[in-house]
């Protein structure tokens, strides 16, 4: 499903190159549950952005379901983001003036689905994350855990094959954090490929595969069952 070969990402900061990713090789099969861990500045978020086609590698190749992402045009990248990838953000990124239901509808609005179908699917997605009764509420009227669940509903409403979560519990207390992780894992059990970026060891350890990054390189992967 995902295949990275020698992927680098270099930024210019003050005229000097900064290597956020310095040659990453990574392969993720469909339906896997992978955590990406590492200290701040190790390149976790950059890796996730590249995996989600929000960013393009400066070197190496990234193949997503066989397609070389580096060769795709802007519009094709947008289509990949829309159809193949779902994002869950640490800070939720809900549109404050829209209700929970409208936030979940947003990707379908952009995709141009008819209104009736949008509402039906958004309601179903909110129901699946246990928020059917919160549909008419705005984000500010929801708790942190509820907001993150709205965000998850929005990420999966167009049935992507990959779910990318960037510190999904970073802004949550441990109870709602566990709830959110539980929800993500149940989606993974239904076949969704799940990649979670975190620096929380306890959460990282729950993944069947752990990828450790340091200074833009993979310094270790722990397979399923390892300590």
């Amino acid at each position: 499903m995902i295949r990275l070969e020698g992927v680098t990402r270099t930024y210019e900061v003050g005229g000097r190159p900064v290597h956020a990713l310095a040659g990453v090789d990574l392969e993720v099969a469909g339906g896997e549950y992978v955590s990406i861990m590492g200290p701040s500045g190790s390149g976790k978020s950059t890796l996730l952005s590249i995996l989600g086609c929000l960013d393009r590698p400066t070197g190496g190749t990234y193949r997503l379901r066989g397609a070389d992402v580096g060769r795709l045009g802007e519009d094709e990248l947008a289509r990949v983001r829309r159809n193949d990838v779902g994002f869950v953000f640490q800070s939720f990124h809900l549109v404050p003036r829209l209700t929970a239901l409208e936030n979940v509808e947003l990707p379908m609005v952009l995709a141009g689905l008819p209104r009736a179908e949008r509402t039906r699917r958004a309601e179903a997605a909110l129901g699946a994350v246990g928020l059917a009764d919160r549909a008419p509420h705005r984000p500010e009227q929801l708790s942190g855990g509820e907001r993150q669940r709205v965000c998850i509903a929005r990420a999966v409403v167009l049935r992507p094959s990959i779910l990318l979560a960037d510190e999904p519990t970073g802004n949550l207390d441990s109870a709602s954090g566990n709830e959110v992780i539980g929800l993500l894992e149940s989606l993974n059990r239904e076949g969704l490929t799940l990649l979670v970026v975190t620096h929380d060891e306890a959460i990282g350890r729950r993944a069947r595969r752990r990828v450790r990054l340091l200074d833009g390189r993979v310094v270790g992967t722990a397979p399923e069952g390892a300590p």
Binding site: L54, A78, R81, H93, L110
Partner: peptide, 16 residues
């Protein structure tokens, strides 16, 4: 700006 980032992440084309 963050909302624009979100729209792009949700699959909006720049044209949109």
């Amino acid at each position: 700006t963050r909302e624009v980032g979100l729209l792009l992440a949700l699959g909006a084309a720049r044209r949109q």
